[in-house]
């Protein structure tokens, strides 16, 4: 293992300390492994929390900020936070108007967040709702869409739900916006090389020098096929074909797209992917809105990329374009 660290066991805590030291105007610690927006929760505003394992920055903690998340619970690398940390994140986000739990569909996270919701309802009378991102089309077929894992789609859901909460919509509305965004997102990933979890010390999977894997999950979950590495256009075409199979775009439909690096893939290669993906979207008759190209949801130092499509109606498009600010993403 070749990593810049002091102690694998201190990896997450030292990362959080650094993040808060660098951006004290945005983040504050609100408990053991709980990050909240600097300053107190806004009275009367719906709080939005997320959470999950470390190793995906800017997901999850990075997106705490104005117009996005209010608080976040973070676990060890690729491991669920405890239910108590999740409950603390909900207490930190609570402005008296209820809290939305908005996160990816992973078994451990779901069980712990549900437990946390029950605890704060019993102990603190905090009303809360859940919206799960299940946008990774490689993880289950359309007939079992509810079993899919959450990936890049959560960026769009954080943004639209965050903007909805910022304009002081009520919990039901913020939840509805988040759910509709989640329903309209489809993602697919591909990987070239694995990453290493600091406390494990060995790569999450093995792959030959000249191979790629289509459909791999953001923790190295097995994908659809593994074969010789193909050209950027061929890879992008297959990814777009698979996404179009799952979400129908009619002529003139507004659609945002995220071309995301899993960590080590450089911005240059993302633009090579985007070049082709944009052509495919335009050929399909879609109107591209606010494309995102960069590191938005990573898997440590994994090489590879994900593409997320988010189909937009008028309301979602308006919310996507509203201002937001965190250390990793600003919309003016």
């Amino acid at each position: 293992m070749k990593k810049i660290l002091n102690d694998p066991a201190a990896y997450v805590d030292e990362m959080l300390e650094g993040m808060i030291a660098a951006h004290p105007e945005i983040y504050r610690m609100a408990g053991q492994r709980v990050i909240a927006r600097a300053g107190a929760a806004t009275r009367g505003k719906v709080g939005i929390v997320s959470g999950g394992g470390s190793g995906h920055l800017p997901v999850f903690t990075g997106y705490v900020g104005k117009g996005l998340l209010d608080a976040c619970a973070i676990g060890d690398v690729f491991a669920s936070p405890s239910a108590e940390e999740m409950a603390d994140s909900m207490r930190a986000a609570n402005g008296g108007a209820g809290v939305l739990r908005l996160y990816g569909n992973y078994g451990g996270d779901v069980m712990n967040f549900d437990m946390a919701g029950e605890t704060v309802a019993f102990e603190n009378d905090i009303e809360s709702t859940t919206v799960l991102l299940a946008d990774d089309v490689a993880s289950a077929g359309p007939e079992e869409a509810g079993k899919r894992r959450g990936t890049g789609g959560m960026i769009f859901a954080f943004k639209t739900a965050g903007a909805s909460a910022e304009r002081m919509d009520d919990l039901e509305t913020v939840t509805r916006i988040a759910q509709r965004t989640a329903d309209n997102c489809r993602s697919l990933g591909m990987a070239l090389t694995p990453c290493t979890v600091p406390q494990a010390g060995t790569p999450t999977f093995q792959i030959n020098e000249n191979e790629m894997e289509m459909g791999m999950g953001i923790h190295g979950e097995p994908g659809i096929w593994r074969d010789q590495l193909r050209s950027a256009d061929a890879i992008t075409d297959e990814m777009m074909d698979r996404l179009f199979d799952d979400i129908k775009l009619a002529d003139g439909d507004a659609c945002s797209i995220l071309v995301n690096s899993l960590g080590a893939t450089p911005q240059e290669e993302l633009y090579i992917i985007y070049r082709r993906a944009a052509t495919r979207l335009q050929d399909a008759g879609a109107r591209i809105v606010m494309p995102l190209v960069g590191r938005y949801a990573t898997s440590m130092e994994m090489t590879g990329a994900t593409i997320t499509l988010c189909k937009l109606d008028e309301e979602l498009e308006t919310l996507l374009k509203e201002p937001c600010h965190c250390a990793f993403w600003t919309v003016m």
Binding site: A79, P81, S82, A83, M111, M115, T119
Partner: peptide, 18 residues
Amino acid sequence: FQRVSSSSFGTLLATGLM
């Protein structure tokens, strides 16, 4: 149990106790 364990069995026990 919610504090010390994020494993599924720990959360299930916490659920029963709740």
